[in-house]
Design a protein around this nucleic acid. Structure first.
Lengths: 346, 346
DNA sequence: AATCTTGTTGCAATCGTTTGCAATAGAAAA
DNA sequence: TTTTCTATTGCAAACGATTGCAACAAGATT
């Protein structure tokens, strides 16, 4: 056969790479070694201890690929971030990245590994099925529906162990965890109005479903309070483009708005900068509310009033639901309540 | 055998899950299907097309675990973030997270998947060997040496496909990619002094090797310029603790320092807040320089003068070197030049 | 017509671990 | 002493894809 073993010989000395090597050393059969290391009770205590000792001594660890193949489960959860709208750009979105960090910890805590994939659905229509069909993952967490709602719905019909971070829509078929964006939007608008604003604008991209819900929430309030409808100011998430777009929006609406609801704290921070550059006082002349309560919200000048999403709770919810689905349960979606964090900008 | 197949039947209809199923449908042997799908040239074009058509029709994808086991390579690169110092806390460090995002894109571009693991070396001495020995990954990228320099060195001796983000030390044996931290420290100190500061302080945790190098660079300059040595103000990275610690430092050193070099932009932003709270004018009374050039650096008031690390270049370097090591090459470390970004705080 | 290519395909072993079933030994019960 | 357990262990067949080698057919060469 003569295949090269090259590159990175994992074991320096003795070469105890397989369970069979170890079995030979211990004078037992591979099956017994497997059972001993798995901690099954049907191995004699003394035998087990001997095997464990040898394993420890040689730093042996069973091959996860082989184990995964045989057991038909890998111990790996896929986490996929679809880069839908705002394609081509590296969206190192702080919110998603923080969520990812918590997810990693939470999955580790439950003994799972995390396989990360960023995909561009536009150039790769097959992104979700390919990940699922790879055989490498036991389940998948999708971070952000982006503009892929329909595709996710399709997959949910025939693949159960999937949980999605995003917006909950009445009657949807996939299991989702997320903040009540519409309520969040209401909280933001109510705060702006309570602070004295009457002519509101929304800064963000309403083709993203989460943002659309936030916008809708704000619109609810405007309608209920009988003030002018909230003005939508389409803005990309990528900082470079966003700055310019916000500047343009502010120029175009000069004097016509006195309250801004930004879809994200990142956008809110940019708004703050642009407002300052134009000499517009915040919160005196224009009130401003963000969303997420990222660390940056506390560091702006003045500090940002914002709608808080509990990221840690979100990560826990995602993992918890996924594990229950892996156990065969059918689970409902989980909608988390947002919370207004009152600081200075509104 | 009677094992349950339960949970998430990946295929709705026809059940073409294995290469053998597909072979039966196509009327050929499994081997031929394998060759056809692998794009090897030794399959008749017509046969290949037929097989590809059936595969497409049934949404078949070969099982990566089986393939990985047989070929002894997985197509997965492990990325591990050791949480060494500042343990117990979720360090969702923006810099590392951004680097991670770029890494994901860069690895994807080369056809690799990314398996993410955060580990706490203190409670898990075996973290690196276990990851490597799992058989799930072809190579590993370690993000940050933390306080694990020695362990990484040990592993490097017998495991080649590993590249580390971090600080380069003379004569080290593991392949590292990173910014020239010492030079960065020099740039920062020079800038502070050029702006008129004479009594410098360093805010950060010098037990982390990267930060120690930044501090040392600043110290170099202080020595060379004949001013007082740079005062080390030990500060954790976690925002909650950091704020309090910085406040304490500022109180303790009131009037004794006129230039602060913060180990990170995040810390610098916190310094800015604390300085403002104490009514200390920046840059008039105290100059301030950060490190990293994260997005936040442009959004503080006043905007932060900082030392830029080219994160995208870092990610490219890490992946490039790792791939060359996977190909059997021995590679040198890569040290990237930092760049001073002059804004307002110094 | 016989031999030699060349191009395709099938066969079967292999990657390393798990696990149902059968075999064995020793202990307990008769 | 014989029989019946019970607790351990070994055997060998999976898991699904890859690949060296051999077999084969059809065309090319002699």
């Amino acid at each position: 056969m003569n295949e090269e073993r090259s590159v990175g010989d994992k074991t320096g000395r003795g070469a105890v790479r397989t369970i069979t090597d170890l079995a030979r050393l211990a004078g037992v059969s591979p099956g017994t070694v497997s059972r001993a290391l798995a901690g099954k009770s049907l191995v004699n205590t003394k035998t087990r201890e001997k095997i464990e000792a040898i394993a420890r001594e040689h730093g042996f660890r069973p091959n996860q690929m082989a184990s995964g193949l045989r057991r038909q489960k890998t111990g790996v959860i896929g986490v996929v971030i679809p880069l839908g709208h705002d394609t081509s750009q590296q969206i190192s979105d702080t919110f998603f990245m923080t969520l990812l960090g918590f997810l990693a910890d939470e999955l580790t805590r439950h003994g799972y590994d995390l396989m990360l994939r960023r995909v561009v659905p536009e150039t790769d229509a097959d992104w979700l099925d390919r990940f699922i069909g790879s055989g490498m993952i036991d389940g998948v967490i999708v971070i952000g529906q982006s503009d892929q709602f329909d595709r996710i719905e399709d997959v949910a019909d025939h693949y159960s162990p999937m949980v999605v971070w995003g917006n909950h829509t009445e009657g949807q078929r996939h299991c989702v965890v997320g903040t009540d964006n519409r309520l969040g939007g209401r909280l933001a608008a109510e705060r702006l109005i309570a602070a004295g604003a009457q002519r509101l604008a929304f800064v963000g991209d309403t083709t993203a479903i989460e943002f659309a819900a936030r916008f809708a929430g704000a619109q609810d309030v405007a309608l209920r309070m009988g003030i002018a409808p909230v003005l939508a100011l389409p803005t990309h998430l990528v900082p470079d483009r966003a700055s310019a777009e916000i500047a343009r929006h502010l120029a175009a609406t000069a004097g016509q708005i006195d309250g801004i609801f930004a879809a994200t704290d990142t956008l809110a921070a940019l708004c703050l900068t642009e407002l300052r550059d134009r000499g517009i006082a915040v919160p005196d002349t224009v009130k401003l509310v963000g969303f997420d309560d990222l660390p940056v919200a506390r560091q702006t000048v003045p500090p940002l009033t914002t709608v808080r999403q509990d990221i840690a709770a979100g990560a826990r919810g995602l993992v918890d639901l996924l594990l229950r689905r892996l156990a065969g349960e059918q689970t409902e979606s989980l909608v988390l309540p947002p919370q207004l964090v009152a600081r200075i900008t509104a």
